[in-house]
């Protein structure tokens, strides 16, 4: 019954119908600051025994975690290549870092600095599985299981590619370089790439858009307000598309950095596009009542 409803022509499925977890399941509280806030509000005890949905793979308790950056990464991602998407925006090394984290665990366990654990991981030689199991510590078992998992999934490719692309740099790094060059003459310039991204997205969010509605044989472009989530998605897409409009010899991350800085300052292609849209909406305000009936 449900499936028939979903695949019906013209039927728009909502998140509610695809939800795996009932609404009684709360969203995970994974950030340290949020947990501290709960404790201070004396609400921690209540949340302790509530059923919780699993966290997304991108949600971490890192102090550097930023929801908007995670969202932007997902919008940049094409064909599920998150390694590339993260590389373009911030860090292309996370696969390597993950392996290295495990590597340091291994060396602390076996106390043998000369055994190159990362290499043995991929060459499938010299696995000292027995050494790990004899330690029988939780960390060692976790390390061994993740090691096995990494071999099965193709992280080898990630490691080699990150090694080759040493020169590939990132949007945030480029923003910092550009702004630091300005800083020499103007000490009031904003240097924080996270703040600049937030400001750029806030500046480029549209509040109105037009939709075609047919009345009396004519199709009118009727202005309608946009919901906050939709306007965020539009702003991110506009930024990405602006980054793609570049010369052939310019890198995407370099252009994207330029567009983010421009949008944060209230100038540039994205801001112009938003203003153009608002202008059309303003011109068609006479048709606004076609939205109803």
């Amino acid at each position: 019954m449900l499936l028939r409803k979903i695949y019906q022509v013209g039927y728009r499925p909502t998140n509610r119908l695809f939800a795996t977890f009932p609404p009684s399941y709360i969203h995970p509280i994974f950030r340290h600051a949020d947990q501290v806030a709960l404790q201070e509000a004396n609400d921690f005890e209540r949340h302790t025994f509530l059923p919780v949905r699993p966290a997304n793979s991108s949600q971490t308790s890192s102090v550097f975690y930023d929801p908007l950056v995670a969202k932007f990464t997902n919008h940049i991602m094409r064909k599920g290549n998150k390694i590339l998407a993260r590389g373009l925006l911030e860090n292309h090394l996370f696969g390597l870092v993950l392996i290295k984290c495990l590597g340091i665990r291994q060396t602390t366990i076996t106390q043998n600095d000369d055994s190159d654990w990362i290499a043995s991981l991929f060459l499938k030689k010299n696995w000292n599985k027995d050494a790990i199991q004899s330690e029988s510590s939780f960390d060692a078992m976790v390390a061994w299981r993740i090691q096995r998992h990494l071999i099965n999934t193709s992280l080898k490719k990630c490691w080699t590619s990150s090694k080759k692309n040493v020169f590939r740099t990132q949007t945030f790094m480029e923003i910092k370089r550009v702004q630091l060059a300005k800083y020499a003459t103007n000490p009031n310039v904003e240097l924080n790439p996270y703040k600049l991204l937030h400001q750029a997205v806030a500046n480029s969010r549209p509040f109105l858009q037009t939709t075609p509605i047919k009345r009396g044989g004519h199709t009118y472009q009727v202005p309608i307000p946009i919901r906050p989530n939709a306007s965020l998605a539009i702003a991110l897409e506009w930024l990405i598309n602006a980054g793609k409009e570049k010369d052939d010899d310019t890198r995407f991350w370099k252009q994207l950095a330029k567009e983010i800085i421009d949008a944060a300052e209230g100038v540039g292609k994205v801001i112009k596009r938003k203003q153009d849209l608002h202008r059309v909406c303003e011109a068609n305000r006479a048709y606004a009542h076609y939205r109803w009936g």
Partner: peptide, 8 residues
């Protein structure tokens, strides 16, 4: 790796 992590 530390330098690369600090880059962004």
């Amino acid at each position: 790796t530390l330098m690369k992590l600090c880059n962004f």
